[in-house]
Amino acid sequence: KVLVLALYDYQEKSPREVTMKKGDILTLLNSTNKDWWKVEVNGRQGFVPAAYVKVL
């Protein structure tokens, strides 16, 4: 399983997205889209901007 680090806070803007806080460790589920990556955080799955996270 691939983990990513949240570099910035992100507030979800649609039901398909998830909120994350800077420093959160998320599970990367899909990174085929260069702009939006699907992650799991706190038991929820959704998209975050790829530029806001870094693969650990």
Rank of each mutant, 00 (worst) to 15 (best):
V41H: 10
I25Y: 06
V41D: 05
L56K: 04
K21N: 10
A50S: 11
L7T: 05
E17H: 09
N42A: 14
T32R: 13
L29I: 12
K13G: 11
A50N: 03
W37A: 04
V48L: 02
L3S: 09
K21T: 11
V41Y: 14
G46R: 02
Y10G: 00
E12V: 06
Y10A: 01
P15S: 15
V55I: 14
L5H: 05
K22F: 06
K22T: 09
W36S: 03
D35I: 13
L3N: 07
V2S: 09
G23P: 00
N30Q: 13
K54S: 12
W36L: 04
V2C: 09
K54N: 08
R44G: 04
V2L: 13
G43N: 08
R44Q: 11
T19N: 07
R16V: 14
T27E: 15
Y10C: 01
D24Y: 05
I25M: 09
R16S: 15
L5M: 15
E17Y: 06
M20V: 12
G23D: 07
K22M: 10
T19C: 05
Y8H: 14
A50Q: 06
R44K: 15
L5R: 09
K22I: 08
K22L: 06
L28H: 01
E17P: 04
L29C: 06
L56H: 07
L7P: 00
E12A: 14
E17M: 06
V39I: 08
K13D: 07
V4F: 05
Q11F: 13
Q11N: 12
L29V: 15
V18A: 05
V18L: 15
A51I: 11
Q11T: 15
K38L: 15
T19G: 10
N30R: 08
N30E: 12
P49K: 04
K21Y: 13
P49G: 01
S14R: 08
L29M: 09
T32F: 11
K34G: 11
Y52Q: 05
K38H: 13
V2P: 13
N30G: 07
I25W: 05
D9M: 04
L3F: 14
V41F: 13
W36T: 03
L29Q: 05
W37P: 02
A6G: 03
I25Q: 06
D24E: 15
L29R: 04
K13W: 04
V18Q: 03
R44I: 09
G43M: 08
V18W: 05
T32H: 15
V48T: 02
V53E: 00
D9Y: 04
L3C: 07
L7I: 11
M20A: 02
L56D: 04
W36A: 02
E40P: 00
M20S: 01
L7G: 02
V18I: 15
K38I: 14
L56T: 06
L7E: 04
G23C: 07
Y8K: 13
A6K: 01
V53Q: 00
V41P: 01
Y8D: 10
M20D: 00
L28N: 01
V2N: 08
K34W: 08
D24R: 03
W36G: 01
K1G: 10
L26F: 07
W36C: 05
D24M: 12
Y52T: 06
G43Q: 10
V18S: 02
L7R: 05
K22A: 14
K21R: 13
S31F: 12
D24A: 09
T32W: 12
P15L: 11
T19S: 14
G23Q: 02
D24P: 00
G43H: 09
L28P: 01
K13Y: 05
V18T: 09
V55P: 10
K1P: 14
I25P: 02
P49Y: 02
L28V: 12
S14D: 13
Q45V: 13
K13S: 13
K38W: 13
S31V: 08
V4K: 01
P15Q: 13
Y10T: 01
K21S: 12
L3T: 10
T32V: 10
P49I: 02
K13C: 14
G23N: 07
T19P: 07
V18P: 01
K34F: 08
E17S: 07
P15E: 12
Y10F: 09
R44V: 12
K34P: 11
W37T: 04
A6Q: 00
V53K: 00
F47L: 09
S31Q: 09
P49A: 02
S14Y: 07
K1E: 13
N33I: 07
L28S: 02
A50L: 02
V55L: 10
R44P: 01
K21W: 12
N42G: 13
P15M: 09
G46E: 02
A51V: 11
V4H: 02
T27W: 11
V48C: 04
N30L: 14
D9C: 04
N33C: 08
Y10V: 01
K22H: 07
V4W: 04
W37R: 02
E40T: 07
L7V: 08
D24F: 05
T32G: 11
K54R: 15
A50P: 05
R16G: 15
D9S: 10
I25T: 07
W36Y: 09
V18G: 02
T27V: 15
D35P: 03
W37C: 04
L26R: 01
P15K: 09
W37I: 06
K54V: 14
P49D: 01
K1S: 13
V18K: 02
G46D: 01
V18C: 07
V39W: 00
M20L: 10
A51H: 11
K38N: 08
F47N: 04
P15Y: 12
L3M: 14
W37S: 03
Q45K: 13
Q45F: 12
Q45A: 13
N42T: 08
K21D: 04
L5I: 11
A6I: 02
Q45W: 09
K1C: 07
A6Y: 01
V39Y: 00
D9A: 10
E40F: 07
Q11I: 14
L3K: 08
V41Q: 12
V2A: 10
L26W: 02
F47S: 03
V55E: 07
K34E: 09
V2I: 13
L56R: 03
E12D: 05
L3G: 03
D35W: 15
V55D: 04
V4S: 04
G46H: 02
E12N: 12
Y10M: 01
V2T: 15
K21Q: 10
Y10P: 00
Y10H: 05
Y10D: 00
N42P: 08
S31A: 13
S31R: 10
V41K: 14
Q11H: 14
L7D: 02
Q45N: 10
W36K: 03
D9G: 06
F47T: 03
D35H: 15
R44W: 04
Y52V: 05
R16T: 15
D24N: 07
E40M: 10
I25L: 09
V48S: 01
S31Y: 11
L7C: 06
L28A: 02
R16L: 14
G23F: 05
K34L: 09
K1M: 13
L26M: 12
V39N: 00
Y52P: 00
V48I: 12
P15N: 12
Q11G: 10
V18N: 05
T32A: 14
K54I: 14
R16C: 13
G46S: 02
T32M: 12
N30A: 11
V48E: 00
D24K: 03
K54P: 01
A50T: 05
T27G: 06
M20I: 14
E17A: 07
N30M: 08
A51E: 08
V53F: 06
I25K: 06
K1R: 11
E40Y: 11
S14H: 10
A50V: 06
G46P: 00
Y52C: 05
L26C: 08
R16W: 15
K34Q: 10
L29F: 05
F47Q: 04
L28D: 00
W37N: 01
L56N: 04
V53H: 00
Y52I: 06
N42S: 12
L56A: 05
P49W: 03
G46Y: 03
R16N: 15
E12L: 08
Y8P: 00
E12Y: 05
V48Q: 00
